[in-house]
């Protein structure tokens, strides 16, 4: 076990965990932030996507010991009340079916739009194809992303 001081959603949080613990489980088990989802544990599905210094990152393969001074944003930090433009677009397009993958989808989309405010279809495919949706809401996700782009 080791002690870590982590910058999460703008706040500094203390965590006592095994250095190999993936951020996914630090968030869910230690910090009570369950919006980041477990889907595969091997960076194949994207349900656990968070922002590490603004970049979309799979938290299920990111050990807590690797974070250092980097800033983490989770879905809870994107906006608590659903006012982020991507969250609003998701609601306007009524994207979700079961909803389980959607926080990861939103985090991937928000990172994409920050680095590329007007993505092409190919850009969206490239940025989003690591996020699986078993319900098949991909078309609505694409529409929602395009609606955010100016």
């Amino acid at each position: 076990m080791a002690k870590y001081s982590l910058k999460i959603n703008g706040k500094t949080q203390q965590v006592d965990a095994d250095p190999s613990t993936p951020m996914l489980w630090v968030l869910r088990d230690h910090l009570n932030l369950p919006g980041t989802k477990y889907g595969c544990g091997m960076a194949q599905c994207g349900a656990c996507t968070i922002h590490l210094d603004g970049n979309a990152t799979r938290s299920c393969v990111l050990p807590v010991s690797a974070i250092g001074k980097s800033a983490i944003t989770t879905i809870e930090g994107l906006s608590a009340s659903g006012t982020h433009p991507v969250q609003k677009a998701w609601l306007e397009h009524d994207v979700a079916q079961c909803g389980y993958c959607q926080t990861g989808q939103i985090m991937s989309a928000a990172a994409l739009l920050k680095s590329n405010p007007k993505p092409s279809d190919a850009d969206i495919d490239a940025a989003m194809s690591g996020n699986i949706c078993r319900c098949g809401t991909y078309l609505r996700i694409k529409e929602a992303i395009k609606a955010v782009a100016p």
């Binding site: 659903g82 009524d94 909803g99 959607q102």
Partner: peptide, 21 residues
């Protein structure tokens, strides 16, 4: 009509069994 759980889904609220605590 919009999904009544939409807001909770997009804000990552603990809706699912795996979130139960």
């Amino acid at each position: 009509q919009k999904n009544t759980e939409g807001l909770k889904v997009v804000t990552g609220k603990p809706l699912f069994g795996i979130d139960y605590k």
